[in-house]
């Protein structure tokens, strides 16, 4: 009957409207968080870049290749640090990062170090061994936590627990584009051009190359980890904002569609009523 259907449509419109309000609010929250995160990314980016540059400069110019950080790994085990979000409803953000990590893990003996609730849950349900689950809140992670993680993983690397350490995070390219990325952390990449090294200028290590490496590398890794974390957090907010923006738009479209249907149904019921009355009067 037409009356029931208009009521149904009305109910659906109402529920759509409340959904729209929620997504709209989430979008606004994400937008303001995004602004903060973006400021932090722009502040930390030079640090991130210079650290990376410096590490590669050091590995390029060093003659001391005996450092355990540079050596070819004995063990085949891979430690994957995965930075994902704490919450869902962020479009493809969590899915993309996790998909990339699964690709990296394929056919290898892997342990993960998940950062963020979504990553912890995912690896737990897939029964992947975890290095530690202590860092389940990506939003609460401070810079000193990053340094602690870096110290821990370099210790584990030196102890031979892992042969390779990689980091999976999301690069914040722009508000509209976030790309998941993999970065090798340890061992440090030694460039191929061994011949040209002798032509490079000598570098003095104070007090010794070994000690400098031992002191600097965990610090650098910590810095890199923090940078990646900032990028990921920013990417998460951007992804959520975009997802919620399109959800709001979809809700609006559906409401417009339903309103049209509602008006048609109402018109139809009025027409029917008139026809009935006229038919009754003529009889």
């Amino acid at each position: 009957m037409a009356g029931v259907s208009t009521k149904d449509i009305k109910n659906r419109i109402r529920s759509m409207e409340s959904t729209k309000q929620i997504t709209k609010a989430m979008e606004m929250v994400a937008a303001s968080k995004l602004r903060q995160a973006q400021n932090r990314v722009t502040a930390s980016r030079p640090y991130f870049e210079i650290l990376y540059q410096t590490i590669s400069d050091i590995t390029r110019t060093t003659r001391d290749l005996s450092s355990p950080y540079l050596k070819k790994p004995q063990s085949d085990k891979l430690l994957l640090i995965v930075i994902a979000g704490d919450r869902g409803l962020a479009g493809g953000y969590n899915g993309n990062v996790l998909k990339l990590s699964v690709q990296q893990m394929e056919g290898r003996d892997t342990t993960v170090l998940p950062i963020g609730k979504k990553a912890v849950e995912y690896f737990r349900s897939h029964k992947v061994p975890c290095h530690t689950e202590a860092y389940s809140e990506a939003a609460d992670l401070s810079i000193s936590d990053c340094f602690t993680i870096a110290k821990n993983i370099s210790k584990a690397f030196l102890a031979g627990e892992y042969g390779e350490i990689k980091l999976v995070y999301t690069n914040f390219v722009s508000v509209l584009s976030q790309v998941p990325a993999v970065m090798g952390m340890l061992p440090l990449n030694v460039p191929k051009e061994t011949e040209s090294r002798s032509t490079k200028m000598d570098t003095v290590y104070e007090p010794s190359a070994e000690e400098v490496f031992a002191a600097i590398i965990p610090e650098c890794l910590g810095g890199i980890l923090y940078g990646a974390l900032c990028e990921s957090r920013c990417a998460e907010q951007a992804a959520r904002r975009t997802a919620m923006d399109s959800a709001t738009q979809n809700a609006e479209e559906m409401i417009a569609d339903l309103t049209l249907k509602f008006n048609r149904a109402r018109q139809a019921s009025i027409t029917q009523e008139i026809t009935e009355i006229v038919a009754g009067a003529e009889a």
Partner: peptide
């Protein structure tokens, strides 16, 4: 014009 160096 310091010599190239790295220190912690």
């Amino acid at each position: 014009r310091h010599i190239n160096c790295v220190c912690s």
